[in-house]
Nucleic acid binder design. Sequence first.
DNA 1: TCTGCTATGATATAACATAACATAAGAAAT
DNA 2: ATTTCTTATGTTATGTTATATCATAGCAGA
Lengths: 159, 159
Amino acid sequence: MKSSDMPLDIDQIIKKSQEVCTLAGAKLTDKRKNVLIVLLAAATPLSAYEIVERYKTHFHEALPVMSVYRMLDFLIQEKLVHKLETSGQYMSCAHITCEHQHETPQFLICDRCGSVKEIGIKQHIIAELERSIQSTGFTLAHQQLELHGICEHCQIKPQ
Amino acid sequence: MKSSDMPLDIDQIIKKSQEVCTLAGAKLTDKRKNVLIVLLAAATPLSAYEIVERYKTHFHEALPVMSVYRMLDFLIQEKLVHKLETSGQYMSCAHITCEHQHETPQFLICDRCGSVKEIGIKQHIIAELERSIQSTGFTLAHQQLELHGICEHCQIKPQ
DNA sequence: TCTGCTATGATATAACATAACATAAGAAAT
DNA sequence: ATTTCTTATGTTATGTTATATCATAGCAGA
């Protein structure tokens, strides 16, 4: 069984997230926490507007989109959430409870079912990429890669 | 002098574009051609709405956004134009007049000035990327990479 | 309690994109 | 030349993602 198929221990992840925020001198308020919970419970990345809907379903409380965007900004800053630039969607970081230093994330986005797998691409490939770019004088800001394709599961299914 | 600093021979690129379309059994209509000209004349990628504005300035004719999107779809299909997924902008292909088979494009996007450089990343790096992804069962649809950072020119400037 | 900071709410609007249906323009067939 | 078909474009409406701006609430420290 691959780790990605294992049920998440949301309580543990939230606890760890609290610690991360406290260490950074930031506050994981109830609403920020709930937004994170919505993302943790989702099988796919969500748009800010989808988060509003699910928040309402889960917590019986309406949250303005504007607030969701701000909470997402906060969670991204604390590296608890990633933004997928290619689709304008947000997902919880798959490695919140990992102790190791987080590398720049790389994503495999399934264009059929919308699922996303967060992977760690070998650092030497990224290094080689950077070397191949160096000659242009360009300095990379962030190396987040978003690769689109079809996931294993959807390849097996007839369509 | 690097080729990217050289003035484009727009006439020649348009002529070649006509050929590409004819070969594919498609028609590069006047309006499609004009949209391409707008992109060729731009220093940075443009959004569909910016294209509408410039089209009006250049050709004294109002074009509905809807039509621009369709023309962009056409030009992208003919590989004369690329879409930057991370910014929702469009730019002409830098290699229209090249005879060689076009590889999947890779882009260096300057987050300061918005300029974009279309580069060819060594094929073996892409191959290695694919290999590193293969174990996940994922099949890449397109390997277009959009890398954000600061371009050479903006690094030299004070801010 | 006052002050000030941070978080959140509310409203409006910008920016990017698509759906659905109507019309026009050009090629091919008769 | 007229009809017919197809492709291209126009029109209107709406959906989706994101930001600006100003107001308010809630909490911490002086």
